[in-house]
């Protein structure tokens, strides 16, 4: 198989296991496991309510939700406009359109390897920055 092509549905019908019952049993097992974990978390670690919102009392160490923490931390190191432009105006469009350039970068011997390495580093950096923000580093 050439790496340029990615076979579509019809060619798969010869191989593989039938959805029912083989695969379906596994899906039910995963659903049961996830439901179990969620109910475990919700009952043993219920969400706290805390105090009602008070615009006049700023609590100590306010942070955005965890999935914004890496962006929040970047803004401490780079000028705000650049950090925000990168996070919300430049990065999202790149994330959306990069598959359309696959045939271009796949022509290079290490094109995909380089891309995957860069993204792996990016993911590591994002997790690292979020951890710094969570721990309250300036």
């Amino acid at each position: 198989m050439s790496p340029e092509t990615n076979h579509s549905h019809d060619e798969h019908d010869q191989g593989g296991v039938p959805f029912l019952p083989d695969h379906f049993v596994k899906e039910v097992a995963v659903i049961a496991l996830v439901m179990g974990i969620l109910i475990f978390l919700a009952t043993l670690m219920p969400s706290p309510m805390g105090l009602p919102a008070d615009p006049l009392k700023t609590p100590l160490g306010i942070k955005p939700e965890w999935y914004f923490l890496s962006v929040y931390q970047i803004l401490k190191y780079v000028p705000k406009t650049i950090g925000i432009a990168w996070s919300f105006l430049i990065f999202p469009p790149i994330l959306i359109i990069f598959p359309f350039f696959y045939r271009f970068y796949a022509r290079f011997k290490y094109g995909r390897l380089i891309l995957h390495t860069l993204v792996a580093i990016g993911v590591f950096l994002a997790v690292f920055l979020a951890a710094l923000a969570y721990l309250g580093f300036e």
Binding site: A53, P55, P59, E65, I84
Partner: peptide, 16 residues
């Protein structure tokens, strides 16, 4: 829920 946490996190978020 309009508690302290949600109010101030939203304030930070909308300022960003």
């Amino acid at each position: 829920p309009m508690n302290q946490l949600s109010y101030w996190a939203t304030k930070v978020g909308t300022e960003i």
